[in-house]
Design a protein around this nucleic acid. Structure first.
Lengths: 158, 158
DNA sequence: TAGTTATTGAAAACGGTTTTCATTATCAAT
DNA sequence: ATTGATAATGAAAACCGTTTTCAATAACTA
């Protein structure tokens, strides 16, 4: 199912142009990395991506993966997360194919559950908080992160 | 002012006992590290703490700072944060001397602003979200983190 | 097609954190 | 107080994800 649906190749199709507009060259390694990100709905680490790309393009190096991820992050096409397990995770930025969401993180097994519930209620609170905080602290708020930490069901009973 | 008020020595006074109860020995380096944490209201890195402790106890090593911080974190006496600048930060856990709060993080200068506003509204939303998420995902929620990212006033005009 | 230059891969460097291990200090039992 | 078992320590080395270096290569422009 992972490679079947409508999400496939989204990054390349939708953003290939934007990529060139910014003056960057479209290369084989970059296409491959973008495809992996577009095909997955997981929270991939640089190494995850490297290993997947490596299956089709064994000569693409980990360095290039890091460099491309930084580029895509800076362009706002993907988002970099830190869930506290010592390595950064990347996922598609919010957009037509990616709903606004947050994460539950299991402190024991580090599993990450993505949820999209309560977003309306959240917006209510966030809008007011962002407005108030922006004014009081003269802080131009660009984004937010909400993480819930705890123990997942699999870990609780073992 | 930083060393004057009622917060002084809080960690040692309030938690020294708890510390021994857990079977840990109370040592000079540990007392020194706990004092630094109790005296400060900043978000200290391991190195910050090491440098401060080093002024009074030059033979306390960075390793011991890391080990003590891990211990205190596991005991729930302090909280470890990652604000995305590549080093962990530590602060007193919520309690009589530390109000529930969250953080604004400047993406440019990495400055961290602590705020305690909107906590009531937040609680409203969080309680409902935690309840719903716990049930739906069978996830035992222990805590949460809310970070706002943006550009602080000092960085905006330069 | 050629030339400019962005991009690449391999290896080395980096930096915060953790591990190793012999030494030292703490605490309970005397 | 003294002793003895062992938890805690500091210095150095290891660790590991990430970044930098640099010569070779590939992508776009003219």
């Amino acid at each position: 199912m992972q490679r079947g649906g409508g999400r496939r190749g989204m990054l390349r199709r939708g953003w290939g142009g934007k990529f060139k507009e910014c003056g960057y060259r479209m290369t084989v390694p970059r296409k491959a990395i973008m495809d992996v990100l577009g095909d997955s709905d997981k929270h991939l680490s640089a190494e995850d991506i490297y290993l997947t790309v490596h299956r089709s393009y064994p000569n693409v190096g980990l360095t290039t993966v890091y460099r491309t991820l930084e580029l895509l992050t800076d362009m706002g096409m993907i988002v970099k997360f830190d869930f506290g397990d010592g390595r950064a995770r990347y996922e598609l930025a919010e957009g037509p194919d990616k709903k606004h969401h947050h994460h539950l993180i299991c402190r024991r097994c580090k599993r990450i559950i993505e949820y999209t519930e309560f977003i309306d209620e959240e917006m209510d609170f966030l809008n007011r908080a962002e407005k108030g905080l922006s004014e009081k602290y003269k802080f131009d708020i660009k984004g937010h992160v909400i993480h819930f930490y705890g123990i997942c069901d699999k870990c609780r009973y073992k």
